[in-house]
Every structure is written in structure tokens, then in C-alpha cells.
Amino acid sequence: MKTSDLCLEKDNKCAEVNRNAIIFENSKLTYVGQDCSRIPSPLIQVYAPSVHYMDLSFNQLSTLQGLEQFTLLKELVLDNNNLTDTLCLPRLQHLHTLSLNKNNIVNLELLLNKISNNLPALRYLSLLGNVACPNQLSDMEKDEEDYQRYRYYVLYRLPNLQFLDSTKVTTEERLEASRRGQLMKVVCPTNVEGRDDSPATFNSKYTPLPGSKRSIGDHQGAYGKCRYRYSGKHSEGNRFIKNNDL
């Protein structure tokens, strides 16, 4: 069959769908590397009722509109797209595998709320390469301790997971997550709503500076709880403190 294209709706940045790029066999649908900003409507109309596995990696997806029609979906791969905290996860009763590697997801708490509410059968989750997953793929400043705390918190929120990212969940991890996982929550200062049409804003009303100007000579300090703390984990300043400075 020669290459042929079907027109999609005008507001879709992926103006055409390449028939030759669609691979459907044994309930598995693959449409990879086609730069689509949303799930093409022909895929929804033709394949949604019978798909169990779908791979839409290496596109430009910024919305999952239409995903709710894949009611029998069990595995979903969305690696290397443009999905953000505004992504809307519909309720998919049978979905047990979700891969979101290398997207633009920042707010872990928001994502876990959506998964907990809408994906009751989920057993495998992968978030590598997102800011929400604190390892060196997303931030060179993160270390193994940061990543392990993240794992404990995710497993506390999603205790039925069997695999998280590329690693199987161990019995010891599961026990530790149930014991103190709730203490590992990472605060993310965002105003993102859980909708596809909401803007991803990251404004914070907190500031270390006083709320009003002070006159010269006014050195009065302010006392209170601080929202952020600095652990000094990466500081080398202590190397330059001498004994006679103490």
C-alpha cells in the first residue's frame, strides 16, 4: 500500500495522519514519531474499541483528549511527548501499565491524584526524565537519596505498584513506604489545575523579602517559619572556615 494521508481537524497541529505509520496487530496499536499534538481522530474512530496496547511515543502530544474512548486499554506508552501537569487522565478501568518518560511533568502530587482516582488497576508506572521524578535524568543536582525518597512517596500513594520506573518494587521498599512514605512528600509551588485547558503557571506568593520599604537605619528583623530550607548538601563553603574563625 502506497503512502496515503487522511485529513484531521483543522485545529490539530498534526494536519495529516500517515497510514503507513499506523501498525495494528493483535490488539496492539502503534503510531510513533509523527509529531501529532493530539491523538489523531482516525485512530480513535477506527481502533479505540479494540485496542489493548497503544504506543504514541515520539510525537508532540500536549493533550490526551479522546483517550477515554479506549475503554479496553491495558498498556499505554507516551514517552517523549509534550505532556505537562495539565494532562487529563480519564478513567481507564483495565490500564495496568503507564509510561510517561521524558515529558514535562513537574507536579508529582497532582499526577498521583489523577492516577489514584482514575487508574485503579495500575501496576507499572515510569516517569523517568520528568522534573517530577528527581534523578539525574531530569536534574544533575539530584542524587540517589532524592530518588529513593520519591520512590517511597509514590509507593505510599500507589501501594499496588509492582514496578516503578525501571525497577521492580521490593518488599523492603513497600514496608518502608507504608511506614514513613507520607513524610517524603515533595512540595511543588504551582497553581496548575488538573485540566488540559488550564495554563501551566508556577507563581508563588512567598518571598524572603519584606512586604514594604524600610527607612534608613531600620534594621528590625522578622521572625517566622520559613517555607524553604537549605540543607547545604552541595556547599563547599565550610572548607574555607579556619579554627580562629570559630
Score class of each variant (00 low, 15 high):
residue 91 R to Y: 06
residue 229 R to C: 14
residue 37 S to D: 15
residue 120 P to I: 02
residue 190 T to I: 02
residue 5 D to F: 12
residue 148 Q to D: 10
residue 114 K to P: 01
residue 186 V to M: 03
residue 210 P to N: 00
residue 115 I to N: 01
residue 146 D to V: 00
residue 228 Y to T: 03
residue 82 N to H: 13
residue 50 S to R: 15
residue 64 L to W: 11
residue 236 E to D: 10
residue 69 Q to E: 15
residue 144 E to I: 13
residue 76 L to F: 12
residue 196 D to V: 03
residue 100 L to F: 06
residue 102 K to E: 11
residue 20 N to Y: 09
residue 118 N to M: 01
residue 20 N to Q: 15
residue 111 L to R: 07
residue 107 N to W: 10
residue 95 L to D: 09
residue 17 V to S: 06
residue 137 L to H: 11
residue 173 E to T: 01
residue 202 F to G: 01
residue 159 P to F: 02
residue 139 D to Q: 13
residue 227 R to G: 02
residue 127 L to E: 02
residue 180 R to Q: 10
residue 198 S to W: 07
residue 130 N to P: 09
residue 117 N to Y: 08
residue 201 T to I: 05
residue 239 R to M: 09
residue 59 N to Y: 02
residue 62 S to M: 11
residue 84 T to Q: 13
residue 97 T to L: 14
residue 96 H to S: 05
residue 128 L to C: 10
residue 209 L to N: 08
residue 38 R to C: 10
residue 200 A to Q: 14
residue 181 G to Y: 09
residue 188 C to A: 08
residue 120 P to V: 00
residue 129 G to H: 07
residue 205 K to E: 11
residue 49 P to G: 04
residue 4 S to W: 14
residue 65 Q to P: 03
residue 214 R to E: 01
residue 44 I to Y: 05
residue 102 K to Y: 15
residue 220 Q to C: 04
residue 107 N to V: 02
residue 135 N to Y: 05
residue 35 D to S: 12
residue 29 L to Q: 01
residue 186 V to C: 06
residue 104 N to I: 05
residue 108 L to N: 02
residue 123 R to I: 04
residue 208 P to D: 00
residue 152 Y to C: 08
residue 200 A to E: 11
residue 245 D to L: 03
residue 194 G to P: 10
residue 149 R to I: 00
residue 200 A to R: 07
residue 204 S to P: 03
residue 67 L to H: 11
residue 199 P to S: 02
residue 181 G to H: 07
residue 120 P to E: 00
residue 200 A to N: 14
residue 143 D to C: 06
residue 63 T to H: 09
residue 33 G to C: 04
residue 170 T to A: 00
residue 80 N to V: 12
residue 211 G to A: 08
residue 212 S to A: 04
residue 246 L to A: 02
residue 160 N to S: 12
residue 179 R to K: 15
residue 246 L to R: 14
residue 149 R to H: 06
residue 200 A to L: 08
residue 123 R to L: 11
residue 134 P to R: 05
residue 105 I to G: 05
residue 160 N to I: 05
residue 103 N to V: 04
residue 78 L to F: 09
residue 220 Q to I: 03
residue 172 E to W: 07
residue 215 S to Y: 12
residue 14 C to T: 14
residue 200 A to W: 06
residue 144 E to C: 08
residue 209 L to V: 08
residue 190 T to F: 00
residue 27 S to I: 06
residue 21 A to D: 11
residue 222 A to H: 12
residue 74 K to E: 15
residue 226 C to V: 13
residue 105 I to L: 15
residue 173 E to P: 07
residue 118 N to H: 13
residue 211 G to T: 04
residue 210 P to K: 00
residue 219 H to S: 09
residue 174 R to F: 03
residue 93 Q to A: 11
residue 245 D to M: 12
residue 92 L to G: 09
residue 120 P to S: 04
residue 135 N to D: 13
residue 110 L to T: 10
residue 171 T to Q: 15
residue 130 N to W: 06
residue 102 K to V: 05
residue 49 P to L: 05
residue 65 Q to W: 07
residue 19 R to Y: 09
